[in-house]
């Protein structure tokens, strides 16, 4: 069945929506937006930790996508294409704001950026008791450079070579910063847990 012969009320598949959007069909744009808005917005929100800014960036990412949709040839998955675009929009915004996007090389890092080698106590193990809200809050408290790498790798599932290319650092640096981000998160989570335990 061609797109044009679809009856009113039938839901469009993503492939059909892409083809229709290339022809300027408003409903197709809306279908694509609704299919991907959560993932793009979540990415923007995790990276910026600000809802208003995340909404603006979501809007900008989709706008760029819709402007370029005519050039989409389907060599990669549409979601990958959109997601890359969203990441670039966010990274550009972070750079505009002068926030650290490219992780510092190890030798240039300040002492306070290096997480403590805190082994923790046996009775304070995170595994098995990690709740999403705690983790979200801890990610929000990460320094921007750590947060970018952590979100791109652990939340969004990008590989180190992709991150290195997008962010503009070496693969080794990406791995090293990811590790430090996880260590910092561990420290934040344990501190938060200890504070809660002290509260009456």
């Amino acid at each position: 069945m061609t797109g044009a012969s679809k009856k009113s009320g039938e839901k469009l598949s993503e492939a059909e929506a892409i083809e229709r959007a290339k022809q300027g069909d408003a409903a197709a744009f809306e279908v694509l937006y609704n299919l991907h808005k959560r993932r793009v917005y979540s990415l923007c929100l995790r990276m910026t930790t600000n809802t208003a800014e995340a909404e603006d960036l979501t809007q900008e990412a989709f706008l760029q996508l819709f402007r370029k949709i005519g050039t989409f040839r389907g060599e990669s998955a549409f979601s990958t294409w959109l997601h890359r675009m969203a990441v670039n929009v966010v990274l550009m915004q972070l750079r505009k704001k002068g926030l650290q996007v490219v992780p510092l090389d190890d030798e240039n890092e300040g002492e306070e950026e290096t997480p403590k080698k805190d082994y923790g106590a046996q009775d304070n193990v995170l595994a098995g008791s990690l709740d999403r809200l705690q983790l979200k809050n801890a990610i929000d408290r990460l320094p921007p450079g750590y947060r970018s790498i952590f979100v791109l790798h652990d939340v969004e599932g990008f590989e180190h070579n992709e991150i290195a290319e997008m962010v503009g650092c070496s693969i080794g640096n990406s791995k090293s910063q990811l590790h430090k981000a996880r260590m910092k998160l561990r420290e934040l989570l344990k501190t938060s847990r200890a504070e809660k335990a002290i509260k009456p």
Partner: peptide, 11 residues
């Protein structure tokens, strides 16, 4: 835990 955070917010 981070992998479960993906796409749970809505604009």
């Amino acid at each position: 835990g981070a992998k479960l955070l993906c796409a749970d917010d809505e604009p």
